[in-house]
Design a protein around this nucleic acid. Sequence first.
DNA 1: CTGAAAGCGCTTACAG
DNA 2: CTGAAAGCGCTTACAG
Lengths: 369, 369
Amino acid sequence: MASQSVPSTHRPGDAARAAADPAAGLSRGAASRSTTISEVARLAGVAASSVSRVLNGHPDVSPAMRARVLDAAEMLRYEPDFVAQSLRRGATTSIGFIVRDIANPLFADIVKGAEQELETAGYSMLLMNSLGDPARDAMHLRVLRQRRVDGIILSLQSETNPDTLAALRETTAPIVLVDREVQGIEAGAVLSDHFAGVTAATVSLLELGHKRLSLIGGPFDVRATRERQAAFETACKTAGLTSANYETKLGPYTHEFGYQTMQALLEGATPPTAVIASGVQAGSGILQALDERGVVPGTGISVVICDDVEFLRLIRPSISVIARDGEAIGAAAGRLLVERMKDADAPPRTEILPTHYVARDSSAPPQRS
Amino acid sequence: MASQSVPSTHRPGDAARAAADPAAGLSRGAASRSTTISEVARLAGVAASSVSRVLNGHPDVSPAMRARVLDAAEMLRYEPDFVAQSLRRGATTSIGFIVRDIANPLFADIVKGAEQELETAGYSMLLMNSLGDPARDAMHLRVLRQRRVDGIILSLQSETNPDTLAALRETTAPIVLVDREVQGIEAGAVLSDHFAGVTAATVSLLELGHKRLSLIGGPFDVRATRERQAAFETACKTAGLTSANYETKLGPYTHEFGYQTMQALLEGATPPTAVIASGVQAGSGILQALDERGVVPGTGISVVICDDVEFLRLIRPSISVIARDGEAIGAAAGRLLVERMKDADAPPRTEILPTHYVARDSSAPPQRS
DNA sequence: CTGAAAGCGCTTACAG
DNA sequence: CTGAAAGCGCTTACAG
């Protein structure tokens, strides 16, 4: 195929040049214009529509036509213009991914997982960070709409922010939420079974003998927080603890919040003997606060961090985590989105992925006090 | 302006509906079609070209025209179609960012920095991971070309891979390289002054009395490796060490490579008393290898890691690093790219950003041996 | 200052 | 099986 000869009326090199050059003087920006479909058509001596049919694998084309077109296309190194295709087809084969903060290693894994899945299906990904600001979620949704993306993966800042909800309602592209639940909009979702993981961790800490526990971090208006808080408090109650002995401190997913909250707890009259951090950023803040006061995880206080990241494994004593597979979450989100982009009638689906409590040295019996 | 009344021949609600509905029955994918410029024109009773002029801030428009158009656009919640604009203008206001691995926290910071800079200038970012495979660099370059991105930020896998170079030569969009130098192509670049950082670290280790040092990691065909190796070996030579006493081990930027290389070194006849890791992934491999043998950084062996990440700071004993500011690197790359996208004649520029050696507990005098 | 026309690069009914 | 025409939604010379 590739080595097949050109129609004899054309001399390879010159013909290619001649066909490509005439159009070169257009006023279309700085870059050297690339070959268009009509240049291929001219060289092959056929209509542009036929070139399109061949290149798109339309069934009703003669072998002769196919050969002429493929030769011409190859000679001119023709690559179809995605922008023109997008306008004509009404689909861009691109999707948007709005993420809270790509610098969170878990999100980086999720993005990576999604990208691989989407790339296989021919989609490219526009990445946007909301950086803790719900207004940016709404803004990015607007931009993605104007860019006519075929779908959106979304890890919202807030499930209840009015601006975000308004922007979501105006969004017609299929949406897959990552670890979020939003009332009143049609969207697929990939959720994590936080309840199971936090329950396992809390029960395990209780069994070690802890009687004063804290759950730290996570904004109130997000599913993960609700699940974790419910699991944590249910486990404590079930073990017979009274509400004076366990406590949930909600706040942003930041190092700062973990740091300050842990400091405050340590200064309190009856500090907890075990803490669970909702996320690695809060977790790192907690570890810093402990380190500054010389409190050793496991010995001085038990620590469990939600989400696992590579570097966490280097810390000694080793830190217990509630792990989940970021790449698997991203891949699932990509799959669910592709499913709906390929079939507009496919109903949005929800997938729940597991979390696993991994006990390490930072989980230990409380010191006598 | 916004509250100005509609031309009296139109009743707000009905007119808007009437103008919007007729076109609703088209065969353009699943999503409810959005308003087009001609619908706005019809409602305002003007030509589409006038709507375009108003919305693009063309100077020669009468206040009356402006008002009519803005009212109509607002009433129909008109948002221009970026795809159509892109085709017509020959510019997509989107750029591509090809990164080795977004899961590397330094790259995540770089991407974040670039995104913010680009967003300010109105550009969106397509993100692609090459995942250690140079063939993916070439593939992604091809896709970005077809998507007609206005510019590309590139942190190549390899500076010499033939496929990559071929793909680069076919790229006409302006390019900014991140920490890479490629011969024979026109590209801007943001580089890090690795030479300064590694020199400072090596000199400092030598001054502490180390006489056997290793530099671990980094692929051979990348600028950072050359700079680091040159700085490391120059400093050792200058201090009077013979080549039997210092060694550079090159290899991929992976945890695995750091881990295995460190293991091998520890098993050797004369292990180094100090190592410098080229990057956090190799660094984490090295730390794991040390941990498994009970070798404590600072006490048993001095360790310096190139690049700093948040979680590294939680490790005890604390690890010395050669730090650089990822977000600043990304922001600089974004700025250089925007500069060239806005002015096709702007020559590609190179910016060199500093690195800083930060000595911590893992840098200490060698043990007597 | 405004409108009608052309055209960006494709794809897809519609004829033949 | 193939070509000519229309059109996706814009913008921009070109007339007036």
